[in-house]
Design a protein around this nucleic acid. Structure first.
Lengths: 119, 119, 119, 119
DNA sequence: GTGGTCTAGACCACG
DNA sequence: GTGGTCTAGACCACG
């Protein structure tokens, strides 16, 4: 899986990587149990600080998307715990996006089409 | 319209206010042409600095959501320019949210229900 | 001659009026010697403060575009003094505009076409 | 590149700096990808507040002229997006300048010579 | 070390 | 009275 970082985005690098890995898992590009590159390897490959990648993995672990251990490194979790709910933060973000889209003249059905596309 | 700021949020204060005003306009709580509180009044009411509110108003003005003039203060724009499109940033955000929701076990139709609710 | 003011422009009202009168004179819509409305009449007609119009006339007088006296009110000057030069401020502005146009991909000849159009 | 601020100008400091950087880019004094001074360095050098410089950089970033990232500071954009058009504000300004020049006895060809010089 | 955010306080032009 | 600008000074996340 290729991870691309936009140096000039307002989104911090560690968060960009986190987001791409989450989308990779959701999209099936990263399979349950699949091994992730080591912190060092990924940092080297992307030309960024190891601390940045380390922070990403820590967050993904806290969120329950991956597991880490000294022996096996980082792996996609076999059974990701499903809350069955959209997080409060994401609800707020979704509400903001829908509001802005509405004011931009985007129709409800166009938004739903985007859900279909991204899901 | 009541604006609430979460001091512990990662979202900067000026952006929280901006988001709530945009949602207020989209939701009809703030009508086209309606007067917004003055920079000073809103700053006082919320216990924050005038510069912070001023920044919010300038962003909203730049985005075309409000107008300001020296005489009358700030007002919701009568005719908000409609791009007809979801911004690239919002598309990326939406994609992230959908991915996370999917991994949380939220169904496509539940997400669409949320669109209906927020639109 | 119809003067229109944009309440939401960053350009102060007195300056908007001043600019339109200058362009009116340059374009021939206002003839040499032609009478301008009184401060009071113009302010009333536009629904603005008399002080604002007064300020405009004062500036136009200082710049040599109009004459004012108690008997005849304000008139377009018969012989506007021609410096034969573009003012330093306008040179700086022109330079800024040309720079921005150039970076926007506007060609030199397009700019010259605009000169032809406006002159 | 030397940036000079006129304390007595009506143009705000942050805008004067913005204008000079834009003209620097257009004139080739600032190359694509070139590093700009840090906010602090420029503020110190010019004897002004960091907030003022920060505002300038944010405007330039919004306008697409520069990019900023936390690691490297601010840089001139490699690929500046070209609208291919003169902005409405600049058109109005150009019209005003042409009118004033005409009344000052400046010929059309002299104005075009200035376009050649500044382009 | 970098840009980003925020405050308290001040002064200004405009109208 | 209104928004706009600016300062001095501080703290923060990111990397």
């Amino acid at each position: 899986m290729v991870i691309k970082v936009d140096d000039y985005s307002d989104v911090p690098i560690y968060m960009q990587i986190r987001n791409q890995i989450v989308m990779g898992i959701s999209g099936g590009e990263l399979k349950p149990g699949e091994q992730l590159p080591t912190v060092r390897a990924l940092a080297m490959e992307m030309g960024i600080n190891t601390m940045t990648v380390s922070k990403t993995y820590q967050i993904l672990k806290n969120e329950g998307y991956i597991t880490t251990d000294r022996k096996n490194g980082a792996r996609v979790r076999e059974e990701i715990k499903q809350s069955g709910e959209v997080s409060e933060d994401n609800k707020a973000e979704l509400r903001r996006i829908v509001s802005e889209a509405r004011l931009s003249g985007v129709s409800k059905s166009e938004l739903k089409k985007m859900i279909d596309e991204y899901y």
